[in-house]
Amino acid sequence: MRGPDSLGRGWWRRNIWGLVAMLPALALMIYAAVYSDLEYWQRGRPSQAPSAADGSAEFAGVRLRLVELAPTTDLKRYGNAPFVPPDGVTVWRAVIEVESPDPETSPFCTILLEDEAGNRYDVNAEELSKARLPLANCRPDTEDPAPVSGRYRTVAHFALATGVDAVAVRLSFGGVDLVRYVRLTLRG
């Protein structure tokens, strides 16, 4: 470290602007180091696709509308005996109307139920494993006659703790869009 220069300035005075410039340079260096991970994380975060004012949504080439979301007790076991869920479990049924230009090529979907606290639930939970349930995948049910109008319904069942209320369903179409989902609620 040299002594004062011809103007009488010491090392710190001579290098003050270089030292100040180090702060934004350091910030830029840290940002550049984490940028790719940050962008990857943000692009992978599930995001909600827009829906229409009437509660329906057009997504993955089909129009979707939630027409029923309520507890149900009329499930059957294989063999047609009534199904009784485990103690403390309430079964909820969601009915989603799907309108497709060609039901034969409608994409498969994954359906989650959302409760009032924002918790999510899978279709056909283990607690319902002894009930006879439809597949709930947004495809026309193979047991029904082929929908001529292009409009059909997909039915999903969920197991929730008794006393918890469901408020919405989330549908994602992994074969079409890996990160966006549609959130459907009941509209009067």
């Binding site: 403390g88 479990v89 409760d115 918790n119 999510r120 639930y121 899978d122 939970a125 283990e126 607690e127 969920f158 197991a159 929730l160 703790a161 918890v164």
Partner: peptide
Amino acid sequence: GRSIQPGLPV
């Protein structure tokens, strides 16, 4: 092999 739903312990 066992899916666990919120609020439904196993």
